[in-house]
């Protein structure tokens, strides 16, 4: 159950959209921020707010990689594996992340801090290889830089 205040603000967001569907991503992101991930309950709540069926919300939720339909760590690491980053040897970088965090792709660290997922091009090709951690983008990554970033992100959290 979401708090009344959140509900009212989301209702206002939906009301200001030309079609309810267009507000779907915003609603899902807000609910995700509230619960930590988009729970089944949140899908149903989003559906009720948007006047869609739960399935129709699920269609959108499962399409977007930044909507999490499973529990994730405090911060999600999206590491790009698209073409430019691949040219910049992201494979090695991804392996480094896996080893460092001790998880596979999709996994969450034992302390619940990070979840590691691959993602499509984030428009940072010029700074490849790239990743984002908890929404902050980082480019020109090297193992050393990754160590620093993770250390810093862990502290910030």
């Amino acid at each position: 159950m979401i708090p009344e205040t959140l509900k009212t603000s989301l209702q206002a967001r939906v009301a200001s959209a030309i079609t309810a569907r267009e507000a779907a991503v915003d609603v899902m992101k807000e609910l995700q921020a509230h619960y930590g991930w988009l729970t089944d309950e949140a899908v149903e709540e989003a559906a009720a707010l948007l006047g869609l069926s739960p399935l129709q919300v699920e269609e959108l939720a499962t399409f977007y990689e930044m909507i999490y339909r499973r529990p994730v760590g405090k911060k999600v690491i999206h590491v790009c594996d698209s073409i430019s980053c691949w040219c910049a040897d992201c494979d090695k970088l991804i392996q480094y992340l896996k080893d460092k965090l001790g998880v596979g792709l999709g996994g969450t660290t034992a302390d619940g801090m990070f979840t590691l997922v691959p993602c499509c091009c984030m428009g940072m090709c010029g700074d490849s290889p790239a990743m984002s951690v908890g929404g902050t983008p980082y480019g020109r990554l090297t193992p050393e830089l990754v160590d620093e970033i993770l250390e810093m992100e862990r502290k910030k959290a």
Partner: peptide, 16 residues
């Protein structure tokens, strides 16, 4: 109540 979920190689046709 029936539609398509997921993306890329994981698209799934079914119910919520």
């Amino acid at each position: 109540d029936f539609g398509v979920m997921g993306s890329a190689g994981r698209v799934y046709f079914g119910r919520f």
